[in-house]
Amino acid sequence: MAKVLVLDSERCLGCKLCEIVCSVKKERVSDPSRSRIRVLRWERGQEALPVFCQHCEEPLCALVCPVDAIKREESTGLVVPDREICVGCGGCVSICPMLGAGFDNREHKALRCDLCQGDPACVKCCPTGALRYVDSDQSQIDRKRAAARKLYLR
């Protein structure tokens, strides 16, 4: 059964530990701005929202990418950008309805959560259990697909 990263946003305290752990694991630097999971706040003091790639059924980011850098990996089913090919136009960032398309402002390249090859570091460090890595039952997948269809593609 496929596993998915899920969020219980009401539990998130906005501590941003996941950003640090992610950047250390994936980029080997402690730099939240280069994390694949991002904890956004609308304004100081307001609620935090962790955002990350949902690996949509029909990803708009792949449709928008002008150099075909974003593809679904056949082996894992994940939607991942190829950093070598990415030109850093940022088109995927503006169009993602889930705010899940990250961007490395230092290297000017798209960043996407790849679930750490099935062992997501953010889940392990999350102090409140807001982030969980769970088996996705079919109804969950169906619901997600229906939502995606309602969003745009049918």
């Binding site: 956004l40 940022g90 960032v93 503006s94 169009i95 993602c96 309805p97 705010l99 961007f103």
Partner: peptide, 13 residues
């Protein structure tokens, strides 16, 4: 949007 343009995508739906 200017800067981080991600919030724009979130509003399109």
């Amino acid at each position: 949007a200017l800067g981080s343009t991600d919030r724009l995508g979130g509003l399109v739906t």
